[in-house]
Amino acid sequence: MKSRAAGVAGRQGPCLRARETALILRNYSFSVSAWESTRTAFWELWNVPLGAQDSRRKMLQTSNYSLVLSLQFLLLSYDLFVNSFSELLRMAPVIQLVLFITQDVAVLFNVVVIFLTCFNTFVFQAGLVSLLFHKCKGTIILTAVYFALSISLHVWVMNLRWKNSNRFVWTDGLQTLFVFQRLAAVLYCYFYKQTAVRLGDPRFYQDSLWLRKEFMQVRR
């Protein structure tokens, strides 16, 4: 016990020196803790692991992307099919009703898929939502317009044909709406396909100089 007390007394000198250090360290740790948090945030974004891990992720991404792309094309072809042949398949009003409902659901599903694809990109995860939105803006707006036109045409046609599906229902208004809806369908098909293919750009899924520059601009 005595020897330990002596040891304590002997430590006084170094401990005082340690206290000085602690004071300096306090200043240091305050500034460092603030600085470190920003630095860590930066570090996460700017120094994404490259090399093996990155290429492995890309490999996974490719199979996922192929799957998503095939799903998108399947839904697009279903949309095109219904647009082309729904007028033919009107033996019973229910058939047309089911076709129309599934078509609208397919369009909604396509919108969800394109949004999910966007969320999956590295660009989005880095916080550059506006950049991504700028790329997909046309497609999203056109899809919304097409969806509205489709719904209104479907409601109108089903309303007229519900009692008798083989009735001549055409008026000038319906014909106009029909033309606009079908034209929008073609444009939607084109722009959606374009966006889906463009989202396969590997730049969206990895760190790059381009992305860093965009990020710096946003931070400013």
């Binding site: 306090r26 740790s29 460092v32 803790s33």
Partner: peptide, 23 residues
Amino acid sequence: MRADSGLRVEEDHPVSGEGRRPP
């Protein structure tokens, strides 16, 4: 005691990265 508080801040948030930095 001020020194203590400074160190405590650092100790309470080791995850934010400062735990790595000083050494």
